[in-house]
Design a protein around this nucleic acid. Sequence first.
DNA 1: ACAGGATGAGTAATCGTTTACCCGAGACGC
DNA 2: GCGTCTCGGGTAAACGATTACTCATCCTGT
Lengths: 334, 334
Amino acid sequence: MATISDVAERAGVSTATVSRALNGKSTVDPALAARVQAAAAELGYHPNGLARNLRRQETAVLALIISDVENPFFTAIARGVEDVAQTAGYSVVLCNSDESAEKERRYIDVALQERVAGVVLSPTGASTSVQVLSQRGTPVVAVDRPLTTEVGDQVLVDTRLAARQATEHLIAAGYRRIACLTGPAGVRTADDRLAGYQDAVRESGASGASDDELVRRSEYRATGAAEATADLLALTPPPDALLVANSTMAVGVLEVLAARGLRLGRDIGVVAFDDAPWATLVDPPLTVVAQPAYDIGTRAAQLLLARIGDNTRETTSATLAARLIPRGSSSRTA
Amino acid sequence: MATISDVAERAGVSTATVSRALNGKSTVDPALAARVQAAAAELGYHPNGLARNLRRQETAVLALIISDVENPFFTAIARGVEDVAQTAGYSVVLCNSDESAEKERRYIDVALQERVAGVVLSPTGASTSVQVLSQRGTPVVAVDRPLTTEVGDQVLVDTRLAARQATEHLIAAGYRRIACLTGPAGVRTADDRLAGYQDAVRESGASGASDDELVRRSEYRATGAAEATADLLALTPPPDALLVANSTMAVGVLEVLAARGLRLGRDIGVVAFDDAPWATLVDPPLTVVAQPAYDIGTRAAQLLLARIGDNTRETTSATLAARLIPRGSSSRTA
DNA sequence: ACAGGATGAGTAATCGTTTACCCGAGACGC
DNA sequence: GCGTCTCGGGTAAACGATTACTCATCCTGT
């Protein structure tokens, strides 16, 4: 593969001149510059990014560590990050931590080794490994879930409020025995959604149920959610509505409900987080809490780029609002 | 950030010894090794991957360039690639070409600059830029769509056969006026699916329609598919079945059908490509052509790693089979 | 006792850039 | 005509690792 010296030799100049001509940093005689350009083109020269970054002590790469590549919520974030990064000339390395603190740690290590310019992260948990990043001066922005330590910017969603509003919506629609299906304990979004649900239930006194009778936790996946749903339906009396914490879980929930012949809305009210593209295709359409995933991504990327430019800025924490989209699945008359 | 010399100094040895002790390449006195480990730990030393790769003339990074991050088919591929890459110690850079040849070219440039070890690519088109990669000796594996030039391995799906079988399935179910909704001309999967559809139609003589009356093309997205569907329904007589080339398009199609009050299966048969997680949630469940996306990813990654190990292997082209999963949407009696 | 091999660790070259530094030539003011 | 300033471009020193050489030391077999 052609190097800068090959180009220099062919153009009959020094490597310094080639570098200057190609990067346009300093003024170079137009005639020479043209010769260099030509030589580079003829040799099909591609600068070695490794060498360049090693010398410059900087890379134009951002790492994006998310908990699940197959969850549309996170891919929408990725899209947002990517769009912003791309226009600023950065590439994005996507890493899938799979909700595993171990994988997260490993990827943070890789990010550190590769000297990425910054990291966007949806933290799996308490993750002390994040501190390593900031200690080394690598900017971090947390998305979706907060960092326990104050080491970077955050872009969150007021998910507790959203859960509360969703629950209130179900109560207003006449449901009285509302169950909550949320993610694993310790995952902040799962806990927040549960808390929002409890806020609404407590305030309205809607449920005479004992505290946790109607609460179930599972992984943020379809199969776990399906089991939890079956479990809830076995109660006497069973719940008359469900608040589901995520769209992949909703898939499992709806499968079980359909298998039991329960009609959405009429027999059992359902509200799920995340406005999946298919939400309008089920019958009746699914009421959802739409999270501004793409915006989270763009916002996070902007904050990260700003911090890369100036690491002394004070840390900010943006909280975006989610939006309830009422559809048939939360209406008894649907 | 601590460098290898810092560690060397603190441990009272040379940088060579530090390198050897940390990489375990050569035998080092256990006592020294321990001192080095300790020094590295105390300083929080992370080796600079740039310098390492520059020297070693290799990187443990694969680039994965796909046409749409938000399409579950491609994220499933990504997952497959990642899982294999990860166990082999490689990281994966995900790039989103967005069906744009221009973006694809740019990302290939980046891959070249960063000297990635290999590239997995779902080519947008004729893409001459791929040749640049192989000229530079970077291994490439194409997924989902073939490369026109013989420069690398390929992992494809026999999508033409699958389309033909899906169409035959509709014919066998009693549908006679079957329309085909496929992707843009020039995108190989779109053309193949159309060809397979035409194979079946021609052979059976099922349709008396003139050639392309029942064929529509749009982008691989919901909105374009919705318009095309409305267009097809305006025909007299309208089609009694639809073959849809992709699951994101299916979303648009099903929305329009629902809006018109058309019942799946009974009023209009539907088969769509890609077994989306929600396919069982619509009523009746959607008949799909399940593509082995995850397997495509693992297979591609394996081929790529093999080629990275030995670039002289002859190029292989694997064709995986898709599987028709009949459900209610393609049955008149459902 | 000594040649020869094995072993462990240091010295310095190397990867391919960027860039600080220096130098020669032409321009210009006096 | 000479000092000085500007400008273009070459030389060589980084960047931070890995690794080919080299060399001292020790072990071993005859």
